[in-house]
């Protein structure tokens, strides 16, 4: 060992090179951990808009749609479909509207990958100006007892949308928001099914939804209305 040491470092001509080689792994480790440390500190400070969930994995950046990190297979499939449709030129707007509706249904009405009451799905697809409003409406109603359901039944035994199909779709009347702004709109009627979980009263839940999708000035497609048949 001593001979090896001398061989590497005794001669000044080889000393520094040998030293660099020996230190290199530690330097790389320092850089690696340093980057991770700075990154984790950034995550402690919440962003102003908080528009990007740090737990999201994929996104369609130009359109600010994001796929959650624990997406179901159906959600991944539908998200990929949306990505492809948005990349087309020219865009098939009706097809995009249908895809938006399906993505919303697959995310909002699936509970098996949700952490609790506060983890409301589908929010990236709803009308962005009303997003906090719709979020709280969902928390006060549909998602209100989710945390307790998770505790009672187990997350994996809750609602999961397994298929979403478009029944009808087409252009709709222009949509006017609360500020009087108008947007082109499409209606999409979707039918969807849930995975079978015997302990959970799935039968009470809707499987058909009427959705109005609008196109915003920034090119984003958002859901302005969603309602069942009654």
């Amino acid at each position: 060992m001593g001979n090896l040491f001398d061989r590497l470092f005794k001669k000044k001509s080889t000393r520094y090179l040998s030293l660099l080689l020996v230190l290199l792994p530690f330097l790389l480790l320092t850089g690696f951990f340093g980057y991770r440390t700075v990154d984790s500190i950034k995550n402690i400070v919440p962003g102003e808009s908080g528009s990007v969930a740090k737990k999201d994995t994929e996104d369609i950046e130009d359109y600010d749609y994001h796929l959650r990190h624990n997406a179901t297979d159906l959600q991944k499939e539908l998200f990929k479909e949306l990505d492809e449709l948005l990349a087309q030129d020219p865009q098939d707007e009706l097809a995009i509207a249908e895809s938006i509706a399906k993505n919303y249904i697959a995310d909002f009405y699936t509970w098996t990958n949700k952490e609790g009451q506060y983890d409301v799905g589908g929010m990236y697809y709803v009308f962005s100006d009303s997003r906090p409003n719709i979020y709280y409406q969902a928390r006060d109603s549909y998602y209100h007892y989710l945390s307790s359901y998770i505790e009672e039944y187990g997350q994996e035994n809750l609602l999961e949308v397994t298929s979403v199909e478009v029944e009808t779709s087409g252009p709709a009347n222009e949509f006017t928001d609360v500020f009087g702004r108008t947007y082109p709109a499409w209606y999409v009627r979707v039918r969807y099914t849930y995975a079978d979980h015997p302990n959970f009263p799935i039968g009470e839940y809707y499987t058909v939804m009427n959705i109005t999708v609008v196109k915003r000035d920034n090119g984003r497609f958002e859901i302005a209305q969603a309602y069942g048949d009654n």
Partner: peptide, 25 residues
């Protein structure tokens, strides 16, 4: 605090929204 009996809860199983109206709690 979640101190309720889930079995006695009657929750509306469905959800609808209309962006042209503001939800008021």
């Amino acid at each position: 605090l979640g101190q309720y009996n889930l079995k006695t809860i009657k929750q509306d199983p469905n959800f609808k929204f209309f962006a042209e109206y503001n939800y008021v709690r």
